[in-house]
Simulated assay, not measured.
Amino acid sequence: MKDIDLDKLVKAIEKGKKVTFFNGAGISTSAGIPDFRSPDTGLYSNLAKLNLPYAEAVFDIDYFKEDPKPFYTLATELMPGQFPPTKFHYLIKLFQDKNKLNRVYTQNIDTLERLAGVEDENIVEAHGSFASNHCIECKEEMSSNTFKDLMEKGIPNCESCKGYVKPDIVFFGEGLPKKFFSSWDDDCDNVEIAIIAGTSLTVYPFASLPSEVDKKCIRVLANKEKVGDLGSRKDDILALGGCDEFAEKIARSLGWEKELDKLYDEGQNKYTTKKESEQEKIEDIKFELKKVDIKESKFKNEDKDEVDIDVSNLIEKLKI
C-alpha cells in the first residue's frame, strides 16, 4: 500500500467515514485455523482421512443426513475456544469502540470476530457460525454448552425429536441467513469505506458484495493477491500482503497502535492461561489414572478396595 493511499484512507476515517468489513478465511489463518481451499494446507485438502466421496460433502446437508460423523470429526477441530483472535480481529473491535464501524460481513464460521468483542448487531455471518445450534428436523435450539458436551460423547441428538443437531453453519443445500439479505439491503448504498480482507471472492453471493457498493466508496483490499474487480476503480486501494500486517499499519497510522497491542496481548494471555489450565487438569487426570490399570477406557482392576482414587474428583476434572 502506497503512503499516498494510506494517507487518503486515514484522512477519510478521521473525517468520520465509517468502515464496513468483508472478511474471508485469510484473516484467521494466523490464529492457526486453516482456510478451506489453499493447496496442501486447506481444510478440503486434508479431509482424506474421513473417506468422503468428495471434500465438500462434509458440508453438504444431504450427505450430513446420511452420515453426520465426518462433520462432527471436523467440528471438533474447529470449535470456538481453541483459537485466539488475531490482530486483524482486534482492529475491527477498535473500529467498533471508536464508533467508526458500520458492519462486518464475514464468510467465516469460527466466531473470532465475536471472541474479539465485536457485538452481534454489528456482525453478519453470511455462512452462519458455531455461535448457535439447532435441530435439523424440528428446529429446536440447543445451547452451545449442551451441544459441546454431547459432541464429546458422540453425535448430538435433539432432546425433543432425536434428530441431528448441528451448528447454524450454512451447508450446501441450505439458504443463507435472512440477516444477510436484510442487512445488505440496508447497507448496500451506504458503504463509505469497504475493507475486503483475506478472501478469494469466489463464493457467491458474498463475492458480489464489494462490487455492489457505490462508485464513491473507498474500497481497500487487504489480501495476499488481487481478487475480484478490486483495483479497477480510481478510489480503490490495494494493500497486498498479510492481514495482520495491514492491521498493524492502519493502527499505527491512526494512533491506535498501543490500544491494538494491548487488546491482542490480553487476548493471547487469556488463551494461553486457558490452555495451561487445561493442560494442568490433563496432567492431574493422568496422575489419577496411573493408580488403576486402564485399558481401552475400561477399569481392569480386580480388587477395587485397594484402589486409592478419588472418582468424583476425577470426573470433575474431566469437564474441561
Rank of each mutant, 00 (worst) to 15 (best):
V124D: 03
L91M: 06
V124Q: 04
I109M: 04
L115N: 08
K93W: 07
P84K: 13
R103P: 10
M151A: 14
A55Y: 02
G128W: 07
D110Y: 06
F71P: 00
A131D: 14
T111A: 11
G163Q: 12
Y164W: 13
T73C: 12
D60G: 04
S160N: 11
V118S: 08
K98T: 10
F64D: 01
A126G: 12
P156R: 08
F83I: 06
E140W: 08
I61Y: 02
F95D: 00
F147I: 05
N99A: 08
K139N: 15
D62H: 12
V118N: 00
N102R: 13
K148N: 14
V124W: 02
K65Y: 01
S144Y: 09
T86Q: 03
E125K: 08
T76I: 14
T146A: 14
S144W: 07
L74M: 15
F59P: 02
K69S: 10
I155A: 11
F64Q: 00
L94M: 08
V58D: 00
D149A: 15
L94N: 05
F88C: 06
L112A: 01
P80M: 02
D97E: 12
Y90E: 02
E140D: 14
E137P: 00
T106N: 04
F88R: 00
D67W: 01
P84S: 15
G154S: 12
A126V: 15
I61F: 03
P53I: 04
L52V: 06
L78V: 05
Y90S: 06
E121Y: 11
D62N: 13
V104S: 09
E56F: 02
T106D: 05
Y105G: 01
P85M: 14
K93G: 05
Y54L: 03
H89N: 15
G117C: 03
V165A: 10
E159Q: 11
I123D: 07
V104D: 10
E159N: 10
F59Y: 04
Y72P: 12
L52T: 03
A55P: 09
M151H: 12
L101K: 03
D62G: 04
Y72L: 08
K87C: 06
Q107V: 09
F59R: 01
P70W: 04
E56Q: 08
T76P: 09
K100D: 03
F130K: 05
Y63V: 00
F88P: 01
I61H: 02
Q96N: 07
E152S: 12
L101W: 00
P70Y: 03
K93F: 05
V58C: 01
L112S: 01
K153P: 12
Y164A: 13
K153F: 12
M142Q: 13
L112N: 01
P85F: 13
I92M: 13
L112M: 05
I61M: 08
N102E: 15
E77K: 15
E113G: 05
G154C: 13
A75W: 07
Q107W: 11
E152K: 14
F130T: 09
K98A: 03
L91E: 01
S160R: 09
N157Q: 13
K153T: 15
C161E: 13
Y90C: 07
P70N: 08
E113M: 00
H134A: 12
L101P: 06
G128M: 10
V58W: 00
T86K: 05
